[in-house]
């Protein structure tokens, strides 16, 4: 019996070793593109274009980031465009996040905790709206925003976020349903209105879930390209995703090392945010995909 356990342990040791090798190799495959992006962003133009590639560029040129940051700054009266794009992205992200958190919490509360006629039908329709592809809405939305006088402003990018969305409603509803009904009942006996229950009982408990909604909607707004492409025309209104395209512009755009430096600057905030919020992030994704 003792002998058998030992061989089992040895076997385990070998298989754990193999497992680690496999995982490490896979990690390299998954990380190389990003590392290569950073390496190129620190190369001189000549090194970046050399073949075979240099994995650790020599010399390391930090100034590329400065150059990329100021790229085309003469077009905006000397202000670095990346700064303007970043400000615009920030504006849109703040408003989208705020709108998504507030509106989805309210609506999800209704679907999760309140009974009203037609609620369940409405909820299935809500889920079904996830099937509607954006391209089918593209043209009519454009015409509608034109009538509203919204083209060329940030409004088409953030105002819809204040009217909830199927995915986040679904996410929050899952969470709200796990909060014991007794808490609401107790609050009701204390004389709380529905709004009071929502604001004083449910919301404080739902903070982790709200953080997830905030993160997801931040990512979506930060990454969005098609909507800004349609609604923003003037360079001083571009978001980062849209402005980054200028590096790849018509006549070939900027040199590759600047493209990589600019790309790194757009990717970095997301990755930094991820490292700070990793736990909520991973948990949030996990709940979003598991049917409850």
């Amino acid at each position: 019996m003792a002998k058998r356990t030992r061989t089992l342990q040895q076997q385990n040791l070998v298989s754990v070793g193999i497992l680690h090798i496999v995982l490490a190799l896979l990690s390299i495959v998954f990380l190389i593109p990003l590392l290569w992006m950073i390496a190129t962003s620190l190369s001189t133009e000549k090194v970046a274009g050399s073949f075979p590639p240099q994995f650790i560029p020599e010399p390391i040129v930090w100034k590329n980031y400065y150059t990329a940051f100021n790229y085309q700054s003469e077009q905006l009266g000397g202000v670095p465009p990346m700064l303007i794009y970043a400000r615009n992205s920030l504006i849109v992200c703040i408003l989208v996040v705020a709108g998504a958190v507030i509106s989805n919490a309210i609506v999800a509360y209704s679907f999760a905790r309140l009974k009203w006629p037609g609620r369940d039908v409405a909820f299935s329709i809500t889920l079904a709206t996830m099937m509607i592809p954006f391209p089918v809405l593209m043209v009519p939305l454009y015409a509608m925003y034109k009538d509203f006088g919204w083209i060329g402003t940030f409004r088409p990018l953030w105002i819809p976020a204040w009217f909830a969305g199927a995915f986040n409603i679904f996410l929050l509803r899952q969470f709200f349903r796990t909060i014991p009904l007794e808490l609401s009942e107790a609050a009701k006996i204390d004389g709380c209105s529905e709004w009071g229950i929502f604001a004083k009982v449910i919301l404080p408990l739902a903070k982790p879930a709200l953080a997830v909604v905030a993160l997801f909607s931040f990512m979506a707004a930060w990454n969005d390209f098609l909507a800004p492409l349609l609604y923003l025309q003037s360079q001083e209104t571009f978001t980062l995703a849209l402005g980054l395209q200028n590096f790849k512009g018509q006549a070939g755009g900027s040199p590759i090392h600047l493209q990589m430096a600019a790309s790194t600057m757009v990717v970095a905030p997301v990755i930094i945010l991820f490292f700070f919020t990793q736990r909520q992030f991973i948990q949030g994704i996990a709940t979003s995909g598991l049917k409850g």
Binding site: I91, I94, A98
Partner: peptide, 14 residues
């Protein structure tokens, strides 16, 4: 404050 700033800044850009 951030939301208020964003609304006003967003309109001011345009």
């Amino acid at each position: 404050a951030a939301i208020i700033w964003a609304v006003f800044a967003g309109e001011a850009v345009v």
